[in-house]
């Protein structure tokens, strides 16, 4: 059996844990045998979501890259799930104040969730560290849709916003906000958009494919394989510049001055010293440039979008202001 086990586990990270655990159980002796080649002491990364989701994957990928690049002695990932990350951020602000070894993954979704959930703890209270990745949103219609260009969609929504039904992710999420910003840019009342939130990208995509709605709005990755199969047409992408391999204009090109992406980043607890902040920023920068991280980006299909320091501070503030405005006009946040 042990031969079988070693064959199966010989190349997996679990194998070491397995044999350590078994060894410990047999020897019944406490540990104390971790190698002490220290770069930074023990780092903790919180994923403010349940295991398996995007933030969790980001946290675990960071763990992988930091360990591979030997930037910290150990990295521990914890999950504090719930309510769009607002429970996680509350714990970061209240429980980890001044802890220079703690990071939390977050992203644009959290900006909206804090507002719609009226969370008591906001992003103004954390220490911004870096933006890591971003994904463009795309507007897609079924291949047989009469709408050929994004301009026609803009005209339709201006004429009667009720008749243009949107399928996308959860209410108040980045898809919803992008649809509202689109309507606003097209000259329609964003409060009047007929946005149908679906649970998860899959169900929304099914609704678009089945022709149940006028258009779908979601991360481009959701649509990619359907576009290649000729079942969907992308009318526009929401990034600032065109996306390589995607035959669709940006919204700005199409005359709608608007760009929005679904980004992810990391923040640290409040109350850390300037040196601690610089150390964490340096660590994340080094990680983002490491080959291990580049491999992960390729593997997961994420676009690297590193931004640190004052630029990220300003970016976070801007996103907060813009999101507050649009959520108020949609009626999800009371003015």
């Amino acid at each position: 059996m042990s031969r079988i086990a070693s064959r199966i586990f010989s190349e997996t990270p679990v194998s070491r844990r397995l044999f350590t655990a078994l060894g410990l159980a047999l020897l019944a002796a406490p540990a104390g045998l971790s190698p002490a080649a220290a770069q930074m002491s023990d780092l903790k990364i919180m994923a403010p979501a349940a295991p398996g989701g995007g933030w969790d994957q980001t946290a675990r990928s960071m763990q992988q890259a930091i360990v591979a690049a030997n930037l910290a002695r150990s990295v521990q990932v914890t999950n504090v799930g719930g309510a769009g990350g607002t429970i996680g951020i509350a714990q970061l602000v209240n429980g980890a104040k001044g802890d220079g070894n703690q990071l939390m993954v977050m992203g644009y979704v959290m900006v909206g969730a804090i507002l719609t959930n009226k969370a008591p703890v906001t992003l103004e209270q954390v220490t911004p560290i870096a933006r890591l990745t971003e994904e463009t949103e795309a507007i897609a219609v079924p291949a047989n849709s009469p709408l050929k260009t994004v301009q026609e969609l803009a005209d339709a929504i201006k004429a009667n916003p009720a008749k243009v039904t949107w399928a996308g992710g959860s209410a108040g999420g980045v898809d919803h906000i992008a649809a509202a910003l689109f309507a606003k840019a097209a000259g329609a009342d964003p409060a009047k958009i007929n946005y149908i939130p679906f649970a998860g990208g899959g169900e929304a995509l099914a609704a678009v494919l089945g022709g149940k709605v006028t258009a779908g709005i979601s991360g481009y990755g959701e649509f990619d394989s359907q576009v290649k199969a000729g079942k969907l047409r992308i009318l526009a992408v929401t990034a600032k510049t065109r996306v390589p391999g995607v035959d669709a204009p940006t919204l700005t090109e199409a005359g709608l001055p608007l760009s929005i992406t679904n980004w992810r980043g990391v923040v640290a607890p409040p109350g850390i010293t300037a040196e601690q902040r610089a150390a964490l920023t340096g660590l994340v920068e080094k990680m983002a440039q490491s080959p291990a991280w580049q491999d992960i980006l390729k593997q997961k299909g994420w676009d690297g979008a590193l931004m640190t320091g004052p630029a990220f501070d300003a970016f976070l503030k801007e996103e907060n202001v813009r999101t507050t405005d649009i959520l108020k006009s949609v009626g999800l946040v009371k003015p």
Partner: peptide
């Protein structure tokens, strides 16, 4: 929890743990 279609909390009683 949060109403899926409008993002509002129902029967949440101000407790973030109940939002999901």
């Amino acid at each position: 929890g949060i109403d899926k279609l409008t993002g509002q909390a129902r029967l949440g009683f101000g407790m973030p743990e109940l939002l999901d």
